[in-house]
Design a binder for these strands. Sequence first.
RNA 1: CGGGGCAUGGCGCAGUCUGGUAGCGCAUCUGCUUUGGGAGCAGAGGGUCGCAGGUUCGAAUCCUGCUGCCCCGACCA
Length: 569
Amino acid sequence: MRWSQYPVNTTKETPADAEVVSHQLMLRAGLIRKLAAGLYTWMPLGLRAMRKVENIVREEMDRAGALEVLMPGAIPAELWAESGRWDKFGPELLRFKDRHERDFCLGPTHEEVITDIARSDLKSYRQLPVNFYQIQMKFRDERRPRFGVMRAREFLMKDAYSFDITPEGMAKSYDAMYAAYTAIFTRLGLKFRSVVADTGAIGGSKSEEFHVLADSGEDAIAFSDGDDYAANLEMAVAMPPSTPRPAPGAAMAEVATPGAKTIEDVANLLKLPASQLVKTLLVDGAEGGVVALLVRGDHELNAVKAQKLPGVLSPLRMSSSDSITKATGAEPGSLGPVSFAGKVYADHSVVALADFVCGANRNGTHLTGVNWGRDLPEATAVDIRNAVAGDPSPTGKGTLGIARGIEVGHVFQLGQKYSESMGSTVLGENGKSAVTYMGCYGIGVTRVVAAAIEQNHDARGIIWPDAIAPFQVVVVPLNAVKSPRVRETADRLYNELRAAGYDVLLDDRDERPGVKFADSELIGIPHRVVVGDRGLEAGKLEYRHRRAEAAEEFPAGDALAFLRSRLGN
RNA sequence: CGGGGCAUGGCGCAGUCUGGUAGCGCAUCUGCUUUGGGAGCAGAGGGUCGCAGGUUCGAAUCCUGCUGCCCCGACCA
C-alpha cells in the first residue's frame, strides 16, 4: 500500500476524553473513530489489524473442528422469552419493535438462537458432537461504555456453542476449545494466562477465562509461583493461616475511640497493625435482617464469595445505615461481633486471631483484647476475603502473586441450562430422547486489538505483535523528491517485498523525515526499512525493528534476502 | 441509577464572571525556502458558538427547558 493513497490521519494531540493508553493510541493513530458513546467506526488501518485477529481465530476454530455459521443480529423476543432471559436480562439488552409492533432485541449473545437451530436440526446422537461458531457484531447497551473499544456497546465477538450427548462429551468439547484458545493467543503473540472463573449468573459447572496480562487491566488475577494454579481474584481461594490461634493474653477492655471510624484511624490511634483489627461489615440477609461478615483489618471482603453464603442476600448488598443502627445501636465505624444478635461469618484469618480489636457497637467505642470462645461465641469460619500477594497457594505449592489482566476470552460448560428450557434433545443410542449438554466459548475480537496495544506500546506509540500488525513492514524513503535514486530503490524494494507476499506500506508522502519516523512509530509497524541518499552512497539500507534500540545497515544489493531473515517466513 | 463536569472550525483550547457581532495552536489548501527525528516565511479556506424558548437596541456571554458527551461510584458477566 502506498501511504499517499491511504487515509491514515495521525494526530500529535491526545483527544481529551480518552483515558486508557490503547484508546488514546487508537485515536491518535487513526485506527478508529467515535460515532457515539461506545460506538466506533474502524478505519482502514484499524480494520486491517482487526481482520488479522479475526482470521487467526477463524483458522484455529476451523482446525479444532468447529463449524462457522452467521446468525442474525436482530432476534425476536419470543426466543428470549423461552429461555426466560427477556425478563431477566435488564437494560443491557437493547429492545425495539419492528413495523408490525413485534418485539425484537439486538443480540448481546446467541445461546437462544443457536439452541433453536440445534433443536430443529440436530435429531440424532450420531450428529453429535458438534460445535457451531460465528464471528459477529454484538450489542450490549452498557450503562457506561468506556476505554474505547475495550468496553464498547457494539463489538466484534467470536462465540461458539458445542452440543454433546453426555457430560463427558461436553468436557471433551470444552477441552478442545481450551486448547484452541491457547493456540490462538499464542499465535497472536500475546502474553496471556487462563484462570479459573466464577460461573456467575450463567451457571454451569466449569468456567475459565483467558486474560491478556497488562497493568491497566480491569480484572485482578491471582496465580501461584509454585505450579500452574491461576484464578480470577473473585474465585481465588484464600487459605486459612497455617499457624493455630494463640492463647488469649489480655482481658477484654473498652477503649474510647471518638471520631475514629476507619480501620486506619483506629490502628493509628491504638498504635496497632491493621492485621490485629477486625472489620465488621453488615450485609442484607436473604430473608431480611442483617448478617455480619468479619474480615481482618488489612483484608478486603470478596463479594462473590460472600453472596454464596447461606442466609446472605444475592447479589450482595451492604445494609443501609438505618438497618445497621437498628440491629446494633451503632453506626458503621464502631461495629463489632461481640453481643451482635444475628448470624456472624468470620473469615478464616479472623478466626485465627487472639486479643483482637473490634467495634463495641457503641459509637466512638472499640473493644481490645477480644478472644473467641471467651468473649463471644465461635463464629462460622469461611473464606470471604480477597486473596493477597504472599498468600499460600491453595494447591499447597508456592505462594500467590496478583497480576492484572484484560479478559479477552472465556470458556464455559453450560450443561443443560438452555437445552433443557428450550427443548434441545436428540435421540440417543437407546432410542430415547436425551437433552443435550452445551458449552459456550467467547473471544472478544475487538477487545483483543485494544488489549494487544495495552500490552505492547511505548512513549512513541503502538508496537504491534507481528501477527496483528496491519502492515508487517514499512519502507521509508527520505527526501525522495530530490533523489531519483532513493525513489527508485524504495519503489523496487516495495514491489519485491509485495511480490514475496509481505504486507508492505510505502511511505511515499512528501514529508520530512521526522514526520515519517514519528508516524511509522505511532502506528506501530514492527519492521522498518529506511532508504536514504546517505546510505545509498555506500550501497546500504537501514533496518530497524520497532523494539530495537538502534538501526542496523545492510547491503542494498540483496535486500530481500536480508529482510527475509528479519521478517520471518 | 446517584454525584460531578463539559458542549465555541476536523482535533486541542481561550473568550462567558463584567452582553457590543468570534480568536489561538495543530490539521487542511497555495507559493517559496527547507529535508536523517513532528520545519520556516507569506497567504487562503473553514464555525447558524449543542438544540429550543426567553430577557435586551444588541446574546457564545444573562434566564428557563431539553439533548449529547466525559469522569467517579454503584450496577452488569
